[in-house]
Design a protein around this nucleic acid. Structure first.
Lengths: 340, 340
DNA sequence: GCTGGCACTCGCACGGACGGAGTGCCAGCC
DNA sequence: GGCTGGCACTCCGTCCGTGCGAGTGCCAGC
């Protein structure tokens, strides 16, 4: 069994060296840079086995070895210790995020912070609407038969919809509508808001029914759609850093996938706040991302995940470091949003 | 003078050919592809003059000529006819933008549309806050001494601020505060909101003064800052399209400048709705953008510019096409926002 | 089961040769 | 005076052959 253990040690060394140098790593360099206690020849044997098992591969005969996706996976699952953040990094997180004036600002700072800490592309999801609850609904009249309805959630999101009323409305009707909507929906999770509509319609006074029906169905329909979930993306310049080195093809499909927010949103839908989720290369369903890795986690309080955040980078990334950064930032953002 | 005219014609041909092929263009190819009515030898003479005047240059001896920034400038100013959009493009604009549910959606669609039409990076600015007027202010209590103030502008922007009150407030105070704020600020341009604060404080009942002061100064201070103006950016994948071909250095500084929204916002501050503004290469103050060109224009109604939008791309871009697209989109967005 | 040695493979960098595209200039022509 | 065809020249990009170095696999020995 000592064999197996050393072999894993060799794999770890290969991953670490390759991540830091971006050169295929050979047996000699490995023996020099790591205290494996054996000679290059022995390492070569181990490498041959690792290659046969599919954990590493050589770009061409007589080049060093490079980890495969499977190799990275093993590394992440069994070989990487959680790397604690440095004090400076912790302080940076606080300094960066404190003083944000609103949700937009918090998430904007978060994405910049993450991009800076990890030197990767960072992605932050707005708190999911369907899991948010209504804090307040505001109705503003913008024209005789046109209303602007503003939804404020308990997570700080503010959404607006313009609704055309079937009939002209006056100030009194607007006030009544506001009261009715708030009575019906305040404190209710958006995912469950639809269930309240029948009740609401019943209690509404006759002359307001049409208006209430229009407004409430518009709200429920357009706000619960997952496409309404939003993303903030930052640090795309980091993609261009190693460009040719990191992404053998081009980085274009990745940029496209990021702009196609739906793709990333689907990935985000799987996160939860307790574990950092790592997807490596081919593990990604989406074709454009098969050359990339994602490190994601949910943020929010213990009992309630608000949304996800994470980073996207080459498979050749510093997994322990990125996992630590993503987790730390998510925790801090979770606290921040729980407070407000 | 016939000389001069033909020389300009040669410059136009060079720009057009170079934009479409990305190869330095030689005298022979020019004579073949354009009806200039003279032989390559003559064209060579003209090219020598154009080069001496600084409109074109050769990457190296015995390569074709390439337009300089100055050459593009002349082309844009005197040689390019406004290229009308095709019917399909016009229809695309309408199809793409109609059906947007709110401001966020309108601008998101706009940026995607522009990126698609021009195949460049597109940038759209949110309606400037300082030029917007207050439509409504809403106050929601989130804790004993913490209020959420929501500002709705006549351009459809919704901004929120959390304000910590110096004293605990009750529901009545919140309602009074709401009324006071709306009385004071409704219809007022944000840029002038600061002037109203003293009046407001005077008319406020004694027991609300502290609260009103805190809230109104927070609003005025944080909302009038130009940094509060926002940008939507899209089509960054287009940067990667020609990458090495279009941007000799890397595209990284450009991505960085785009993320550094302040840079672009400053550029946007100069636009107005009547003329399309083109900045070519070195004409850009910002160093990272000296290899790029910007085509921008303001959007809004005739009497009032709300914000700017435009595209960023290599100096080697289709200026007439991009100018036409940018202008058409800006017009349509202007109408759309004027309605709501 | 580990190690040192050795032959082998292969990619890459270097350098010279070649071809092609394009130019500038000049003499002649309209 | 201006345009044109011809010509010599320049220089880039490509291709090919060589040498070098890194790295491997295998084998015999400890």
């Amino acid at each position: 069994m000592a064999h197996d253990e050393r072999r894993l040690e060799v794999l770890r060394a290969i991953v670490q060296d390759f991540v830091s140098t971006n050169d295929p790593v050979g047996s000699k360099a490995l023996a020099e840079r790591h205290d494996l206690g054996v000679s290059p020849a022995t390492i070569r044997n181990d490498m041959a086995v690792l290659e046969e098992q599919g954990y590493i591969t050589q770009p061409h005969t007589s080049a060093g070895r490079v980890p495969t996706d499977k190799g990275y996976r093993l590394f992440v699952d069994r070989l990487s210790a959680v790397k604690p953040l440095s004090g400076a990094e912790r302080r940076a997180i606080e300094r960066f995020l404190d003083g944000a004036v609103d949700l937009h600002d918090v998430l904007g700072r978060t994405v910049r912070l993450l991009a800076q800490l990890t030197r990767q592309v960072a992605v932050v999801q707005y708190p999911t609407l369907s899991r948010s609850a209504v804090r307040h609904l505001e109705v503003v009249q913008v024209a005789a038969s046109r209303l602007l309805v503003v939804l404020i959630t308990d997570t700080g999101r503010v959404e607006q919809r313009v609704v055309d009323s079937p009939v002209e409305v006056d100030a009194g009707a607007v006030a009544d509508l506001r009261t009715l909507l708030n009575q019906a929906f305040a404190g209710i999770k958006l995912a469950e808001a639809g269930d309240k509509v029948p009740d609401l319609l019943e209690t509404a006074p006759q002359h307001l029914r049409g208006l209430v029906a229009t407004v409430s169905t518009t709200l429920v329909e357009t706000l619960v759609e997952p496409s309404e979930d939003r993303l903030v993306i930052g640090g795309t310049a980091n993609l261009a850093r190693g460009s040719a080195l990191d992404f053998p093809g081009t980085m274009r499909p990745i940029l496209e996938a990021l702009e196609e927010q739906v793709v990333v949103l689907r990935l985000m839908s799987e996160v939860d706040a307790s574990t950092v989720l790592v997807r490596i290369g081919e593990e990604n369903d989406h074709e454009a991302l098969t050359g990339a890795s994602l490190v994601t986690v949910g943020y929010g309080s213990a009992d309630r995940s608000l949304g996800g955040l994470g980073v996207v980078g080459p498979t050749r990334m510093d997994y322990p470091g990125n996992m630590a950064a993503v987790r730390a930032v998510a925790r801090y953002v979770g606290h921040l949003l729980a407070e407000s």
